[in-house]
Design a protein around this nucleic acid. Sequence first.
DNA 1: AATCGTCCAGAGTACACTGAA
DNA 2: ATTCAGTGTACTCTGGACGAT
Lengths: 415, 415
Amino acid sequence: YNHRVVDSISSSTASTSSSSPTRGTPIRKSLQCAVCGDVALGKHYGVNACNGCKGFFRRSIWKNRTYACRHGGKCLVAKEQRNACRSCRLTRCLDVGMNPRAVQGDTVEDPEWDEEAMPETLSISTQTDALKVKKKSHTSLFTLDIKKEQIIDNLRAIYARTDPEEFWKLTYPGTYDFRYAFHNTKVVSPRTPLTPTAERIATLNDVVADFRRAFVLFVDILKSIDQLRDVQEDDKMKIAKSRFAAFYWWLCSTWSAKAGCNGVCYSNGSYHPASISDMPKSEGKHGVRIDYSGVSQKSLENLVEPLRRMELSDEERIVGAVMVILADPVPNVSTKTEKILAEARDFYLELLGYCIKLPEEQQGIRVSTMVLLLASIMELVHLTTDNIQLSDVLHVIDLGDWSQELRDHRYRRQF
Amino acid sequence: YNHRVVDSISSSTASTSSSSPTRGTPIRKSLQCAVCGDVALGKHYGVNACNGCKGFFRRSIWKNRTYACRHGGKCLVAKEQRNACRSCRLTRCLDVGMNPRAVQGDTVEDPEWDEEAMPETLSISTQTDALKVKKKSHTSLFTLDIKKEQIIDNLRAIYARTDPEEFWKLTYPGTYDFRYAFHNTKVVSPRTPLTPTAERIATLNDVVADFRRAFVLFVDILKSIDQLRDVQEDDKMKIAKSRFAAFYWWLCSTWSAKAGCNGVCYSNGSYHPASISDMPKSEGKHGVRIDYSGVSQKSLENLVEPLRRMELSDEERIVGAVMVILADPVPNVSTKTEKILAEARDFYLELLGYCIKLPEEQQGIRVSTMVLLLASIMELVHLTTDNIQLSDVLHVIDLGDWSQELRDHRYRRQF
DNA sequence: AATCGTCCAGAGTACACTGAA
DNA sequence: ATTCAGTGTACTCTGGACGAT
Ligand SMILES: [Zn+2]
Ligand SMILES: [Zn+2]
Ligand SMILES: [Zn+2]
Ligand SMILES: [Zn+2]
């Protein structure tokens, strides 16, 4: 998606007829860096730029640098002294049109996890030039905005992702253990488009399909959370097992709030009306029994109603979903994992603030309001967990384990 | 009515199918890349794929790349982050069915100005995407030697290759089918350093770990053999299954000879003393039962003793290992595969001669001597195959199949 | 029309080097 | 003196455009 088409000017441009065409062939009308005047080898981030300015701009964007000029911002930026004032150099980069969004985030992520006070030689070396980025540094305030945008874009894309149409009807009969399902989500559900439009009453099949589709979405998101990549496998499974239900209810309720339907809205365009008595109540052919009456109906309302009033933006909904996943501590994981989770939690909390487009002093309130809703979600989770035959719905075995962990989780919370 | 509000998330991927006549004919337009989900323009190498994945796959196959994932091979491969992990991207390419054989070998002929005579024309000029080199046309001594050096270097690098240290202790419980294990060797063993130094007595765990590590090395080598690239997948599996045991014994015996220990030397610094009665004999907790007494002990000596006297160089050991893999005909493969194998055999035989740094007239003898040892190896293979619970050792299921083929192989040889 | 390969601008990465702390 | 983030050259890799079947 890079490789901006942009040019359109390219050819010709030269116009500045090469004053002195050096001898025959070489041509390559020597370009000039729009920033410093040095020789440019081509376009970089949208403008002709020399290697130095190219690298300088990329590094500045990666870390979210903000420099200050000591001379009133009037420094000349030319080849010989381009390194004299970073502020003016960066300003000029932007002025001549360098596009920060053209900087990608590619490549291997940082190792990140050393930390331990080990001055030890043994510097593993490796690692790319750049990406230390985070590290102990001032994590809080100045994490890169570009990086944030990328993460949000990425999440957005995950929601939009669909499998090729010919797979939409495909089902994989049989049961699989959780770990297998986690790594081969296609056995649970294909990635059909997510269209929570509440156009028709849900059938039991809709509910089941939605639940399974949500699981795939959940796994996709979980896998995209950078910080969790290095969590050990079994802890990752524990996280997945213990957070899916919460995630699912977040999806349902935010979609319901958005669609404005009176009931539970599903991803495939159907919805489950509230307070209608003809809803399928028990013993579906898939064994789904969701008790929406009584307390849990009330709980759902407790969630949907505030959400409706908040009118979440898409970004908030998306990042909020990640927060739901990370919000609660996961029982029985290693301390290292706990630490990673806490870090991720902080990061996404900040990201959540970032995507609230409000004056800074109001951001905190809105974030808090959203986080408060997590309590409602957890209540829903606990109320419904036992009533949903997860194993039947997802066709995932190993549920003895899974539901056990869900249960552990609940009990722990109750005390 | 009611245009689908579609995705709570707009933008990106949207087909933007402007016109789109109301015709009843269902879309059939924007396809999706089976690898990353980006828009696909059509099939490439057998599956719908975007330009990026198409190019990536072709380049990887051409250069015979083998990547290593730094996150356990579970990276999500989606458009936005497909460049984050090459290993997982390539694995996914293969998983969704991209066919390496569909990558056409090379450009049409390549004139290959034979009589350059000038070693240093230095006309690097266009650095085309495709590295030429290749070609195996007779004559052209210089280029061919360079190619040979490259291959040897490459093999050497494979032996030296290790995964990041944090993976050395990682294990993937569970069982996998052979093909999966072949393409995802990390489930069998991480790439720990190969240090056949015979420093301590081997425990059963050492034996198991070594066996598994050797399998990974074996697969790495197998994948690096140019000629086998065009072999169809199932034949490749047959080759792998039928040659591993021989390869393993070659490793053991050459290392044992090199380390000078009296017994079997393993890759992790341990060794299994010969003619000591306290060796673990049966029913290890991993179910490994290797009978080193009697005939097979004798056979091992038949192999190690000559090897010791030959004092193989590292190059000879390394190329010899490839020869071991290619030496015997593999049962039940297509005639095309047989032909390819024969070609490869010839090529590596020549290569073996090349790395023997002796007067040309003595090369032939040394090569022959080495090849003769293959007979001893095959004997070892047949004597021990039935005594090793491969499935338990490698944690690879599908062994009914595997061991069956090993057996077929043996029977065929006996006649 | 479909699917190969090639080209090459412009992304990224490795590493020797610079210079301030 | 040493460290170490930043700089810039010299590469590799990516993927959209396009040519060849
Ligand atoms: Zn410049
Ligand atoms: Zn300035
Ligand atoms: Zn793709
Ligand atoms: Zn990976």
